[in-house]
Design a protein around this nucleic acid. Structure first.
Length: 270
DNA sequence: CGCTGACCCTGACGGC
DNA sequence: TGCCGTCAGGGTCAGC
């Protein structure tokens, strides 16, 4: 489910309800996430106003006065706002009840997500190793080219590595490589500066466009407002293995690269 | 250091 | 209908 556009969509949907509003209470029904949710999390958060809801890579950051709640949606997580009380459904693991009556409800069937607390001044290893945001000026083709010299790893896992650039998951990596005409299994060190320039631009473009459309709903993604995203309709390659390339008609090839399913056109991508 | 593979977990889907 | 194998949008870690 969530890649960067989906996380950003969630942030935009939720921020109006929680920024400047105190956390009234936190209910943890199941603490068994990617890392166990600490037992004292409700006590830490209770009564504290949420100053800002930010995003870094695929993490949501609830910024409080005395620290930050770091939320990751994993593969199957979603965080949505409830304005009316609703009985908890299967996999509704955590509720954050706000002082204005709204409830942020976290659902995550696979429990690959995480809720972590970092007090002010405490270092946060998950964020410290991350590369630049893809939509920032710090990310461009020159960076891709510089970091990839002598690297034999395939270009697709290279751009999905958070140390290279954050927030590029399997869907958007596949799409951007198609748009840039680069084979996903080409060695990262064997892509020219000019082509990396194009790749960086396509990554920015595809992410921007997906954010504008509320993310990509593949199975059950819903944003903070509970609505699905609409980007799925314009995917060129992701999930289309064996179907004809939308540009040249050649059947799209399916191949596992870096342990992830990858789809590309052998005619349009070199 | 760079890279590969295993792993965390549940659910959906296709084949039989 | 039901059982079984396969796969899934992410990230960390051990080991070579």
């Amino acid at each position: 489910m969530p890649e960067l556009p989906e996380v950003e969509t969630t942030r935009r949907g939720l921020r109006a309800y929680c920024e400047g509003v105190a956390i009234a209470d936190v209910l943890v029904r199941d603490h068994r996430l990617r890392w166990p949710v600490r037992a004292d999390l409700p006590a830490i958060l209770r009564g504290q106003p949420v100053r800002r809801l930010e995003r870094r890579a695929k993490y949501l950051l609830f910024c409080l006065d005395h620290g930050t709640l770091l939320v990751h949606l994993g593969m199957s997580g979603s965080l949505r706002v409830l304005l009316e009380p609703q009985p908890a459904a299967r996999h509704d693991h955590i509720d954050i009840a706000l002082a204005n009556g709204a409830v942020l409800r976290y659902n995550d069937p696979r429990r690959f997500g995480s809720f972590q607390w970092f007090a002010s001044g405490e270092s946060c290893p998950a964020l410290s190793r991350l590369g630049p945001e893809p939509l920032s000026d710090a990310f461009d083709g020159a960076r891709l080219h510089r970091l990839s010299r002598k690297r034999r790893v395939a270009v697709k896992p290279f751009i999905m590595d958070g140390a290279t650039v954050v927030g590029v998951g399997n869907i958007y990596a596949s799409e951007a490589l198609y748009l840039a005409g680069i084979r996903p299994d080409r060695a990262a060190g064997r892509v020219s500066l000019a082509r990396y320039g194009q790749l960086a631009e396509h990554i920015k473009q595809v992410l921007t466009s997906a954010i504008e459309q509320g993310g990509t709903t593949l199975r059950d993604f819903v944003g903070g407002d509970g609505k699905p995203g609409y980007f799925a309709q314009q995917l060129f390659v992701y999930g289309r293995g064996g179907e004809p390339c939308k540009r040249c008609g050649t059947p799209l090839r399916d191949k596992v690269i870096g342990q992830r399913a990858s789809v590309y056109c052998i005619a349009c991508q070199r």
